[in-house]
Structures are given as structure tokens and as C-alpha cells.
């Protein structure tokens, strides 16, 4: 891709992602926060697409941005307020917690950045990302793949059992 277009698109997606993330935290209304989260996910999907990770970008949109719908439904059903206006207000105590978590994350990221040497791959871009992913998932990472599948299945069965409720007689 043309370098100039790449840079412009990168900064566009990055600015949208950061602004949306800021909106997620500072919106007073839970639904608005969740919508900004969807925007943030879509901007991150744009970053993936710029890196030629097309399948990952589509999964990001389908799974993450798609889940925001469920998040909003849960948010509305769980908060049980007449108005959603002040459903996501920052508390004094949560600011402290947020500061600690952010600091920890910053330290972790710095450690990773300082210890990992990023290499520019000399090989050309992978054209068939889906095929390559499938090969890896069903050979090298098959154990992790199956464990995740079993975990999801058990979570689903658990949800069904909980939703059915006890047999009251």
C-alpha cells in the first residue's frame, strides 16, 4: 500500500480508537459508554486491517463489536433504573483502583517493550490468512483450541441450567 495513505489511515484509526476509549470512561450514561466501546473496537479492527490481518479484523468486528449489543441489553436489564442518565458515574474509590491498574499495565507493557526485540519479517505477507490460521489451530495449538471449546461448551450448559431454574414442586 502507498506509504502516505497508510500513515493517514493509521492516525485516523488510532485517534478514533483513543477518543472512543476516552468516551467509554467519561460518559455518564452506560448506553453511551457501550456505544463508544463499539466505536473503539471498530477502529481497532481498522488497525488490524492496515496490518493485513483481514480475518482478525472481521473477527474483531463480529465478536467484539457484536457483543456490545449484549452488553447494552445486560446493562439495561441489570441496572433497573427508570432513567439511564447517571448509570455510569465515576466514584472517588474507583479512580484509585483505575490508577493502580493503569500503572501496573504501563509497567507490564514497558517490560515487554524493553525485553522483546521486534523483527521485520523478510517474508512476504501471508495471502491466505484463514488457511494459515486453520493449519496452526488444528496442528500446533490443537490442545488450546480444544480446551477453549470445552470451556465454552461448559459455560453454555451452565447458562442453560441457570436459565431453566430449579424444578419447584
Amino acid at each position: 500500500m502507498n506509504d502516505g495513505i497508510f500513515t493517514v489511515m493509521f492516525y485516523l484509526a488510532a485517534i478514533i480508537a483513543v477518543t472512543a476509549a476516552w468516551g467509554v470512561i467519561y460518559c455518564k450514561n452506560l448506553v453511551h459508554s457501550a456505544l463508544f466501546l463499539a466505536l473503539c473496537f471498530i477502529a481497532v479492527a481498522g488497525l488490524y486491517a492496515l496490518l493485513n490481518a483481514d480475518f482478525l479484523a472481521a473477527v474483531q468486528i463480529m465478536v467484539y463489536a457484536g457483543t456490545v449489543v449484549i452488553l447494552i441489553v445486560l446493562g439495561i436489564m441489570m441496572t433497573r433504573r427508570v432513567s439511564m442518565d447517571r448509570s455510569n458515574v465515576m466514584e472517588k474509590s474507583s479512580i484509585l483502583g483505575a490508577a493502580v491498574v493503569s500503572l501496573l499495565l504501563l509497567v507490564c507493557l514497558l517490560l515487554i517493550f524493553l525485553n522483546v526485540s521486534f523483527v521485520d519479517s523478510a517474508v512476504n505477507d501471508i495471502q491466505d490468512t484463514v488457511g494459515a490460521l486453520a493449519q496452526l489451530l488444528l496442528t500446533h495449538y490443537v490442545l488450546a483450541f480444544e480446551i477453549a471449546a470445552v470451556l465454552l461448551l461448559s459455560a453454555m450448559i451452565g447458562a442453560i441450567v441457570l436459565a431453566k431454574g430449579a424444578d419447584e414442586k
Binding site: D54, F55, A58, V59, I61, M62, G66, Q127, D128, T129, V130
Partner: peptide, 10 residues
């Protein structure tokens, strides 16, 4: 796109 139909679904 390589992921054509998956893109449509997403």
C-alpha cells in the same frame, strides 16, 4: 477480499 463471505457476515 480473501475473507469475502465472512466479511459479509461480520
Amino acid at each position: 477480499l480473501n475473507i469475502g463471505i465472512f466479511f459479509v457476515l461480520a
